[in-house]
């Protein structure tokens, strides 16, 4: 629940009321008890109780008058809740591809449960996704998004250049290859000097690598690539993503 200094700690039903009042004011310029009751499908008496509580927190301007307005503090709180609601709805609907209505419902539940910090991080992540739509596309193309089962997955997923090695999905690396097999490099995910050395030796995406033999005990590996014989350790080979030769 919110605990930052410029908002008052209010329970989730009250947040919903605040949100409703804000929307009504936005739409009609004012909100009346019966409009609120209608929108939230509760009795007017219930609304009154809630309004009294909100007034105690100086969130609404309520003196048993018919027209209810939000204080500036209340307006800030309402906008915040609404922004969360919209963001989460979009997240469930647009990225996770849930039906709109179910997405809105999930958003309603979740918007109250998240702390400010968690929400802030989600917002930042969302901003990142907005800037980098290829990540969303990659996710939606990936069989993982469609809920594919593990076994058939690895081969298909390994063709995606955006996949990182440390994905939960087990990708095939050069260290999984048996002697005598031939594979195609999809990505060199090693770091620093190793990566540059491999690139310099011609181990680039789409080149064919044959694993010819291994040392005693399976290490190091002896491969052929671009006409050269190379020896590399198993730990190094595990940073090279490959797919089976078509």
């Amino acid at each position: 629940m919110s605990s930052s200094s410029d908002t008052v700690s209010i329970s989730s039903p009250l947040e919903d009321y605040l949100e409703t009042i804000y929307l009504l004011v936005q739409e009609h310029g004012f909100a009346r008890v019966r409009d609120i009751a209608g929108a939230r499908r509760v009795k007017a008496a219930t609304v009154s109780v809630a309004l009294r509580k909100l007034a105690e927190g100086k969130l609404v301007d309520y003196q048993r008058r018919e027209y209810i307005g939000l204080t500036s503090k209340g307006e800030r709180a309402a906008r915040r809740i609404l922004a969360r609601h919209r963001l989460l709805t979009r997240f469930f609907a647009e990225i996770l591809k849930m039906p709109r209505e179910a997405a809105a419902e999930q958003a309603c539940t979740l918007e109250h449960a998240l702390t400010d910090e968690a929400m802030d991080r989600i917002v930042r992540f969302f901003e990142f996704l907005g800037r980098c739509p290829s990540v969303i596309e990659a996710f939606q193309r990936c069989p993982v998004a469609a809920g594919a089962d593990e076994p058939g997955l690895s081969a298909a997923a390994s063709t995606c250049a955006s996949c990182a090695v440390r994905n939960d999905v087990k990708l095939m690396t050069l260290s999984d290859v048996e002697p005598g097999q031939s594979v195609v490099v999809t990505q060199v995910a090693s770091g620093g000097a190793l990566r540059q050395r491999l690139l310099d030796m011609g181990m680039l995406p789409d080149t064919v690598v044959d694993l010819e033999r291994t040392g005693l005990g399976g290490d190091p590996l002896w491969v052929r690539c671009q006409g050269a014989r190379l020896a590399l350790r198993r730990s190094e080979a595990s940073t090279i993503l490959v797919r089976r030769k078509a």
Partner: peptide, 11 residues
């Protein structure tokens, strides 16, 4: 870190 072992085996 270990230096890359990657080594060419010349003919």
């Amino acid at each position: 870190d270990d230096a890359p072992f990657v080594m060419e085996l010349p003919p």
